[in-house]
Nucleic acid binder design. Structure first.
Length: 580
RNA sequence: GGUCCCGUGGUCCAAUGGAUAGGACGAUGGCCUCCGAAGCCGUAGGUGGUGGUUCGAUUCCACCCGGGACCA
């Protein structure tokens, strides 16, 4: 049990005794260390309900509170109950963590399956910076869920059956350079796509592309062969980027995987009355009893039904994203037995997902569906970056530049590092910087793309965290014999030591909260705080030069810090170099 | 027209309805005969506006101003 949960449980016992009925209340980390380590506003909330004096109620609660040597409690301000953890309790907790491979993290997800749907680029198009958020945030959420004990299925729902194939096939037939294709298949695919896209306004071209698309969808063997090849080449290119980012998927079930299920689903929706025709299109309307009445987004007509349906078959017979996504939900729920499905997709898709989840519920596909949305990356004009706008920056380009800047920094700060080793470190540091820049802020925030922002190496960045880890390991390199942290006793005397322990103990409290609202930035903030606490400790408290038993205690704290930091970074998908 | 999101020091970002709003960059002042200065310790500087709910509002509600998105 985490320290926070223990306080909550002791507080609940006191509340229950005081009020004479089962009562629980939340404890949170104190906003300010001046007030203690943890705090609860239970007395203020309950006093309001009961119309009594909050401070008096707080006193009653504290009188009943059995903290058993873990903490002391007092009342402050309008009726806060503040807890101060005793150093002995931190010592005991830290000592237990030193021996705990899970670093105090509870397995809250055990027995549940979650599908994380992220990245999902269109094939035969270059990935640009706009794809970075879904890929990095999704990967981190998958890693965290896995560590919390969920059975995680990472699924890359690639766009491998979109209308872009009309243009790709047209380009393939008219502009393909066989030699270039053999040389660099992805670049050639992108070239023919762009070339076709550039001339699509010319008379007849768009129709020709549409014609190729129709032939493909009708199963024309020649077009199918072209389609298959371009998918194959694209996947190789994508895989290279994922390898570099250390992002792994369990499946790549793209749109085409569900093609043969779409017609049946539309028929089923029509037969069961879940959908009806409107102007030739098959539509799923939301509203009625299943809709939440207070939700104006889904219900805004007087009769209680939306005039804004999800279309699952167009008047011309074509299927849409909504149709494919319904098939995907069916597969994930029925085949994979998913309890949760998290879609890491941008804010602009909000309406689509609300309609989709609504339709799935009507269909009887029950599960916890979450649209984990994120804000947009904007260009200098504060407009959304789009694939076709010329100024857009390629993802590979960003990674290259990041690694280059990291290499420059290494040459400057640590010229002893040379050759292959320096190159490897530059890769780890550069990629880490990009990932951390993304993960350390609230996912809903829009931001204007900036090289300096995304590739910063100073301040609140991955290199700072990586450097912290390197510094800790460097202490252990100086030891003559291997150090066994599990044999050490923990002694906390200096304020810096206590603060470090305070943060180490919180690792297990932070992670479940990250998944409550899908906010990896909370974990990012935590590791930053931990690294700062370590640096302060390290300045104030000599480790190798101190006397036993303090020396062993501090070494054990260093060991625990390095493991916690490394685990935290790993959950953000950020690697740590040996040296830097 | 309908719906959604966002306005926080010069800049970029944090903050389950809680206390004196945190951090980084930039600016500025210190610290390398002492476990690696990609570091540490200081200083200055902030919630778009008007009301409302509340013991308490950056957070919730209404309207306004400004930026963006989706659907039609």
């Amino acid at each position: 049990m985490t320290l926070l949960k223990e306080l909550e449980s002791r507080l609940a016992a006191a509340l229950t005794t005081t009020l004479g009925e089962p009562t629980t209340a939340a404890v949170t980390a104190a906003a300010d260390l001046r007030f203690g380590d943890y705090q609860s506003n239970a007395a203020m909330v309950l006093a309001k309900q009961r119309k009594t004096n909050p401070r008096a109620l707080a006193q009653e609660i504290i009188d009943k509170l059995d903290l058993d040597g873990v903490a002391t409690a007092d009342i402050a301000g309008p009726g806060f109950i503040n807890f101060r953890i005793l150093p002995a309790a931190y010592q005991a907790r830290a000592a237990a963590l030193v021996r705990d491979p899970r670093l105090g993290v509870p397995a809250t997800g055990e027995g549940r399956t979650v599908v994380v749907d992220f990245s999902a680029p269109n094939v035969a198009k270059p990935m640009h910076v706009g794809h970075i958020r879904s890929t990095i945030i999704g990967d981190s959420l998958a890693r965290i869920a896995r560590f919390l004990g969920f059975n995680v299925i990472a699924d890359n729902h690639i766009g491998d059956w979109g209308t872009q194939f009309g243009m790709i096939i047209y380009g393939w037939n008219h502009f393909l350079d066989e030699a270039a294709l053999a040389e660099n298949p992805i670049a050639e695919l992108v070239r023919i796509y762009r070339k076709t896209n550039a001339i699509k306004e010319e008379p007849g071209i768009l129709d020709a592309c549409k014609n190729e698309l129709v032939k493909l969808q009708a199963g024309d063997p020649e077009n199918l062969a072209i389609w298959e090849k371009s998918i194959e080449f694209s996947k190789i290119g994508l895989q290279k980027i994922y390898d570099r980012l250390d992002v792994k998927f369990d499946h790549w079930h793209g749109e085409s995987f569900y093609n043969d299920r779409l017609a049946g689903i539309v028929d089923e929706f029509l037969e069961t009355g879940l959908a009806r025709e409107s102007n030739g299109a098959v539509c799923v309307f939301s509203g009625g009893e299943l809709a939440k009445e207070e939700d104006p987004f889904m219900v805004h007509k007087e009769d209680g039904w939306t005039d804004n349906p999800a279309i699952i078959r167009k008047a011309d017979g074509g299927f849409l994203y909504a149709t494919t996504d319904l098939a995907t939900i069916q597969f994930r729920i029925d085949e994979w037995k998913a309890d949760h499905v998290w879609y890491v997709v941008g804010v602009p898709q909000q309406l689509h997902f609300r309609q989709l989840f609504d339709a799935a519920a009507r269909w009887g596909k029950t599960g916890d569906f979450q649209h984990v949305q994120f804000g947009s990356i904007l260009g200098d004009d504060r407009k959304l970056m789009r694939t076709r706008s010329g100024e857009n920056v390629g993802l590979v380009e960003v990674l290259e530049e990041a690694v280059e800047r990291a290499a420059k920094a290494i040459a400057e700060k640590n010229p002893d590092l040379q050759g292959e080793e320096a190159a490897q470190i530059a890769e780890i540091v550069g990629i880490g910087a990009v990932k951390f820049a993304e993960l350390s802020q609230n996912r809903l925030t829009d931001y204007v793309f900036s090289w300096d922002r995304m590739l910063a190496l100073q301040g609140d960045t991955a290199p700072y965290l990586q450097y912290s880890h390197v510094r800790i390991r460097s202490i252990f390199r100086k030891l003559d014999a291997p150090f066994d942290a599990t044999a050490a006793e923990i002694h906390l005397n200096e304020e810096a030591e206590i603060h470090l322990a305070r943060l180490l103990v919180r690792f297990g409290e932070i992670l479940p909260v990250v998944l409550e609202d899908f906010r990896p930035n909370l974990l990012a903030n935590y590791v930053l705080e931990l690294a700062r606490a370590f640096h302060s400790f390290f300045e104030a408290c000599p480790v190798l030069k101190s006397e036993e038993p303090i020396r062993s205690s501090r070494l054990a704290l260093c060991d625990l810090t390095s493991r916690t930091l490394r685990q935290g970074l790993d959950l953000l998908g950020i690697a740590v170099p040996e040296r830097m």
